[in-house]
Simulated scan of single mutants.
Amino acid sequence: MPNQFRVHAALFVVTVIYAANYSLSKDVMPLYMTPFGIVTLRVLGASSFFALVKYFVAPQDKIIGWADNRRSIICGICGIGVNQLLFFSGLNLTSPISASLLQTIAPIVVVIASAILLSEKITLPRVLGIAVGAAGAASLILSRNAQAAIYPHATLGNLFILANATVFGLYLVLVQPLMRKYHAFTVLARVFLVGAIVAVPFGWREALTANYASFPLKIWLEIGYMVVFLTILAYLLNNWALKYASPALLGVYIYLQPVLAVLIAVALGKDHFTLAKAGQAALIFLGVWLVSQKPKAAPVAEVPEEAVVD
């Protein structure tokens, strides 16, 4: 088993990559490139990379059978295509802090989807967690604050982010059987190919007509960050770490992402953290914590000594 320090380091790097993206993306959108244009560059770059690596790392590994192929297509639609279109559309309309907080709803969606698709048990604490988390998300989505002039369509953007977290949570449940059965690069190559087929028709015009000659070096670096770090490196590190990390450890890093996103957004002057957002964050975090609690195993009844037959 790899050194635990390396697992923590991988998860922390992924968390920082995701957290920084909420603020860095605001520099690019919508002045230099539209959300759909960014998504097109991301999925084309990542799908090409994963297809190339899969060719060398697992050339003989193929997804077989109608059930697995159908599942991989659904994963590509939900986890890559629709997910990315919703995320960048929402982030373009709302603030970095609001988007990062709403992303933490994904674990709640995972629990609900697991109960429906995998028949996992939903306990009373989990039901309470779903209700509390939903209350926090609803409060955040519907709130109007001093930044309304900056983000006049923040409510719509928040709804897009919530929908994004929902489809990504569904993706996490659906992709798990594929990851256990096939090589990781086989799955990633397939889902990103499907994602590209879904997303590119929405953004190819924006990607082609963007005025790249006007991009300063900073914007080029941030676009490169979104393609290389946010898409390729984050997926690679995350998939490696998930093989060794416990659910409890993953929960810690789920909480850490919005904390880092808040610090980065405030430090860069992209957003402001208010007491209202602190309260909404507390509700969402409490809800996520409650749904992450696994049901206790039923105690095994002891066999009386008199019943033991020699």
Rank of each mutant, 00 (worst) to 15 (best):
G157K: 07
N164L: 10
N145H: 05
N164F: 11
L178K: 15
V167L: 13
F160T: 10
T155M: 07
L142D: 14
L156D: 09
M179D: 01
A149L: 06
Q176C: 13
P152I: 00
V175W: 03
N164I: 10
G169V: 04
L162T: 09
A165T: 04
T166C: 07
Q147R: 11
I150T: 11
N164C: 12
Y171E: 00
N164Q: 13
L174P: 10
T155F: 01
A149I: 04
A154R: 02
I161Y: 07
V167E: 11
V167N: 08
I161K: 07
F160I: 14
L172I: 08
Y151D: 01
L172K: 09
N164T: 08
L156E: 12
H153C: 07
L156F: 05
N145K: 04
P152M: 02
F160D: 08
Y171Q: 01
A148Y: 03
P152K: 04
L142R: 10
A146E: 12
I150A: 12
N158L: 07
P152V: 00
Q176K: 15
V167C: 08
A148H: 09
T155G: 03
L178A: 15
M179A: 03
H153G: 10
P152C: 03
G169R: 09
L172W: 06
Y171S: 01
Y151I: 00
I150P: 00
T155K: 01
A163Y: 10
L156T: 14
P152Y: 00
N145S: 08
L162I: 06
F168W: 09
T166W: 12
T166V: 03
L142V: 15
A163W: 10
M179W: 00
N164Y: 12
I161T: 02
V167F: 15
Y151L: 01
A148E: 07
L174A: 11
N158R: 05
Y171I: 00
A146N: 09
I161L: 09
N164W: 10
N158K: 06
Q176L: 15
L142T: 15
I161M: 10
L178I: 15
V175T: 05
L174C: 11
L156K: 11
Q147C: 09
V167W: 14
A146K: 04
A154E: 00
V175K: 02
A149N: 08
T155I: 07
F168H: 02
N164G: 07
F168M: 05
S143G: 13
L159F: 15
I150N: 12
T166G: 04
P177W: 02
N145V: 06
N145T: 11
I150M: 13
A163Q: 06
A149Y: 09
L159N: 11
N145D: 12
A163G: 12
V175D: 03
P152E: 03
T155S: 07
I161W: 09
P152H: 02
T166I: 02
A165C: 06
V167G: 08
A154L: 01
Q176A: 14
L174K: 08
T166N: 08
I161V: 10
L178R: 14
L178N: 14
A146D: 10
T155Y: 00
Q176D: 15
S143D: 15
Y151P: 00
G157N: 04
A148R: 01
L174Q: 08
A165S: 09
V175G: 04
P152N: 04
A154W: 01
F160G: 09
R144Y: 12
I150F: 13
L174I: 08
V173C: 01
L159E: 09
S143P: 11
F160C: 14
P177K: 02
T155R: 04
L178H: 14
